[in-house]
């Protein structure tokens, strides 16, 4: 007979594991990926593939040769980072090599430099994305036209579109009235925006696809409703107030939450377990802060979009939120 195993209780474990959680997130990202491929064609697929492969590769190299510890590429977390990074860049041919740099920064600086999965204070994919946004501002804001399945040249995409947020930012800069811009022909309709028929980073365009993934994650209890609801709700209410005060200068709240990265950010990046608070109350504050900062940056910041910055700023507050927001103790 074998030796008896001895340990303290309990002697059973639920079938939860980090690996399962990460693969569930990957699965939840598939609808958004499919939409991106449907709208942006081969480039979307290639950018995602390169991003994922380089993230996994960099993690493997760093664990094997720099940290000299067992490699953990099969836990799926590098793939999540890779997918999210790809989702946050435009699906253009130039991105095919730029995204590799993003992957290096995301995995190397965003994650492994802190000791790997679970120890990073900031969402690695967003670290990569913000690095790219600052380093390659032109390439990162050159949006492909929706429906351009096969670019004529692989290396140059002349057919650049624009995001609704970009159009509005430009309009406000030129002193135009927002309600006029909204009525213009460049602007996609609300339904188009919901389905994803607009310019933008490849993963963020379709609110529908993101919601499908988010509902799956909610059902599998990978995420809880607190952060997405607080995030989107705050953004909606805050931008709604601004819109009521001055509809000439501010965008209406429905458009606010459906355009740009709010949906993707609220459902997939702000809910990243590692970098968000653990207690429900902390999650609500976290989501509130994200929503508020996003609207502030969008309306008064230099960039047309502020989701990444908002989440990164709130990431830095997470340790404090974990300290302040304690679960309610039994009989207290």
């Amino acid at each position: 007979m074998n030796l008896l195993n001895i340990s303290g209780s309990p002697h059973v474990h639920s079938d939860e594991s980090t690996k399962k959680i990460m693969w569930r997130v990957n699965l939840a990202l598939v609808p958004a990926l499919l939409v991106a491929i449907a709208y942006f064609g081969v480039n979307a697929l290639l950018v995602s593939l390169i991003s994922v492969v380089s993230c996994v590769l960099f993690q493997w190299l760093m664990e094997k040769f720099i940290l000299k510890q067992p490699t953990t590429i099969w836990d799926g977390s590098a793939i999540v980072t890779g997918l999210l990074l790809a989702f946050n860049v435009p699906a253009t041919a130039q991105m095919l090599w730029i995204v590799v740099i993003g992957a290096l920064v995301a995995i190397g600086i965003g994650k492994m430099s802190f000791g790997g999965l679970g120890k990073n204070p900031f969402n690695p994919a967003l670290v990569g994305r913000v690095f790219l946004l600052i380093s390659f501002p032109v390439q990162m804001t050159t949006w492909p036209k929706v429906g351009a399945w096969f670019p004529t040249h692989l290396m140059t995409d002349a057919n650049s579109g624009a995001t609704p947020l970009g159009i509005i930012k430009e309009a406000v800069k030129n002193g135009q009235n927002i309600s006029d811009v909204m009525a213009s022909a460049d602007m996609p309709s609300l339904m188009q925006i919901f389905l994803g028929h607009m310019g933008g980073s490849m993963g963020e365009i379709s609110a529908l696809a993101i919601l499908i993934g988010a509902i799956y994650l909610l059902c599998r209890k990978v995420i809880s409703w607190h952060i997405p609801v607080a995030f989107i709700g705050t953004a909606f209410i805050f931008s709604g107030i601004l819109w009521l005060v001055n509809p000439e200068k501010f965008m209406d709240p429905t458009m606010t939450i459906l355009t740009g990265g709010i949906m993707l950010g609220a459902c997939f990046m702000a809910t990243d377990m590692v970098t968000s608070p653990m207690a429900k109350s902390g999650q609500l504050i976290f989501g509130f802060g994200c929503g508020l900062l996003t609207v502030v940056i969008r309306n008064w910041g230099a960039y047309p979009e502020g989701v990444s910055f908002a989440i990164l700023i709130m990431n830095s507050v997470t340790p404090l939120l974990n300290r302040w927001c304690k679960p309610k103790r039994f009989a207290c």
């Binding site: 474990h13 120890k119 970098t275 304690k326 679960p327």
Partner: peptide
């Protein structure tokens, strides 16, 4: 034997599941 062996420990991913499972509201 399969059930008895504990799976290897990995990094805490700060999911908070332990906290939500605790019947005494501890961390």
């Amino acid at each position: 034997e399969k059930e008895a062996r504990r799976a290897p420990e990995t990094n805490c991913i700060r999911c908070g599941k332990c906290m939500h499972a605790c019947p005494m509201g501890l961390e």
